[in-house]
Design a protein around this nucleic acid. Sequence first.
RNA 1: GGGUGGAUACCAAAGUGGUUAAAUGGACUAGACUGUAAAUCUAGUGGCCAACGCCUUCGUAGGUUCGAAUCCUACUCCACCCA
Length: 308
Amino acid sequence: MSTSLPKLIALVGPTASGKTDLALQLAKKYNGYVISADSRQIYRQMNIGTGKPALGAVEMVCDQPSYDINGIRHFMFDMVSPDQTYTVAEYKDAVYRLISDMRREYPDNIPFLVGGTGLYVSAVIENWEIPKVAPTGLREDLEKRTLDDLVQELQNRAPDVAKRIDIKNKRRVVRALEVVLEGKSFDQARGPRMFDILLLGLDVPREELYTRIDARVDAMMAAGLLDEVKSLAAKYDWDVPAMSGIGYRQFRPVLEGKMDLAEAVEKLKQDTRHYAKKQLTWWRKREGMKCIKNTGDSEDFIEKFLQK
RNA sequence: GGGUGGAUACCAAAGUGGUUAAAUGGACUAGACUGUAAAUCUAGUGGCCAACGCCUUCGUAGGUUCGAAUCCUACUCCACCCA
């Protein structure tokens, strides 16, 4: 199928697989720009723990902050402060706007969507139509109720939805009910295909990945992660969404004098491995992903993709 | 040398005669996911089997009993206490 849809290259992979560096290389070679798909690097002031690359000078490009790294524009970093929430829906809208603006301003630039947050990437490349019900107001009340109670109400109001979603997961039930109570339908709609997509999945053997994770955590500690956490903890409540992230929450008991540092670091490594596993699960069963092991692989795929 | 307590599956830890392949938590593995996603949730994890099912487990060796991780005896190891 020949297509005139704008091209988009998505690069995904688990944490510590080397996405960031590879993306930079590829963007340089193929005249690209990078859109981060990382739900944590969205936050300002959270740098070491999120593995954020060193961001260079900012300028506003197409109404969005663009950070220079080695001459390549990087978007969707440092969008909000740690006490703000940021949702997939906002992310997806911002990225769609950005891509279309960039295409108008810089038609030769190719977007590289790069990141480990599968939800964000999927929402963009599959054009998810997320129910337009903002998570405000209702949610707070719903969360106070028991799961059984919520499930019952959902079963009464929208039995088909209750059948489909995971009714053991309160968070899911709350959201479904929130949407249903607003009179909207809660399904998994997707809009039309908007891009011609090349999806590259960085494949690192499990064992090697785990070794890299350990090394990365050690490097973060050496880079002053504990100080970063301390300064964030001084400014923000532990309850804010950003502080629940890996690399931050593990240090709470340390700062409260309930755990020693070495133990927290071990926990951090372990939690990071868990996270990497979940990321792998996200992509495992998705179709159309090209597995790449190295730069050469990815260049082959990209060249073929750009020529067609 | 004497005394007391303990030894349970990868780890921690329940269980003190039958409904126990053995609670629970961790670890590990697999999975779900449409406005919190680095979040939240689910399942499996002695061996063999596609499955009904079969077999082997609770430090070791014996014993009591219709039946034992659970009771008895001896031994081994560990912890603490007295010498």
